[in-house]
Design a protein around this nucleic acid. Sequence first.
DNA 1: ATTATATCGATAAAAAAGTATCGATAGGAG
DNA 2: CTCCTATCGATACTTTTTTATCGATATAAT
Lengths: 203, 203
Amino acid sequence: MENKLNSISLATLHRLPKYLRILKSTTDDTISSTKIAEELNLSAIQVRKDLATVSKSEGKPKIGFEVKDLISDIEEYLNLNKSKDIIVVGAGRLGQALMNYTGFENDVNIKFAFDVDRKKCDNKKIFHNDRLDELVMKNNIHVAIITVPKDEAQNMCDRLVSLGIKAIWNFAPVNLKVPSDITIRNEDLSASLAVLLNRLNIK
Amino acid sequence: MENKLNSISLATLHRLPKYLRILKSTTDDTISSTKIAEELNLSAIQVRKDLATVSKSEGKPKIGFEVKDLISDIEEYLNLNKSKDIIVVGAGRLGQALMNYTGFENDVNIKFAFDVDRKKCDNKKIFHNDRLDELVMKNNIHVAIITVPKDEAQNMCDRLVSLGIKAIWNFAPVNLKVPSDITIRNEDLSASLAVLLNRLNIK
DNA sequence: ATTATATCGATAAAAAAGTATCGATAGGAG
DNA sequence: CTCCTATCGATACTTTTTTATCGATATAAT
């Protein structure tokens, strides 16, 4: 695994998928930083800088960048080439929503979901928690999404880590604690909404 | 409406709800910045700085801060006192997951959901899109969550804006465009996942 | 051919965010 | 009572991120 220890900022990293979406939806062969910036409400300078950190392809004055070059450079940078198998733990509404979400990149594959409720299990994609250990290890899964109730989240998180999961996306409203070698993102929908409401009041 | 034009950073704003969660879950009367920082993997200095910008209550050396003071100050800052009525547009799995999400602050109330599918309508909380205009205006709603398919998202967004919606939380995988006086948050689950996967590869 | 303009990359400046330092103090230990 | 330690607030410093400036260049218009 190539170790990209280069110093890309988290902020830039978050913008890359947005660029990708715009690049993929345009029908033109080239695109200017100005155009991208307009779409996303950013500054053109920022866009150029971001692109420069992940792509060696140079833009032409008055023209812009080759769309296909940028797409492949960003995808390579984000490692969106090798297909990724992911599991969802907790097949409630949110879990199932994520299983059926159409916005993920092509190569992201939610392979299994797990739940304690046997009635939800279809033995195609949704399995009982009993089979979690077996299926994670057999299929060499390293990424998991947690959508279980908050009281069970930390336990489930610990279990996943012990099974070799390396990255966790947590939607339960608690801050999960993991060893330092595990990547975690606590999604915190409540925080997002609070921020939105706050902005509303400022305006 | 009091116009809080003070210069709180977006980063701080995002941390406030996290502090709130910890403060609400502790059983102690006081808490130190060190303790909060540990829980969230932040530095104590940063926590103190954040708290200082939204609260006038001073901490005592060796003791820390009064928990109840911090809670009320943060809640006031985030305007989490007045109850907020919100609608969800698109009662698919994600929409319904949000309707049933238990992690939101108490005073956030998802009042109605709307969908084009009449079979989903229960006339209690889920209504047909036909009644969107009427119910939004009658109930003086200003915040909406969009969970419709991406191709319909911009149209729906425009419609909501024309109905007086001032803040929109968009889960459709497109960057919605709104007038500058409207607050929007494009949630972009795909971007979040891409970032998580990237981090995984860096480690 | 000349000029105007959109765009680029590089570098510099500014702004924002995070971190370190330090003197002060409250409470507990000896 | 005296000393030690955890913690505080204030200030200064460092790093990161964003924005501005500027000369260069590719295309289009005159």
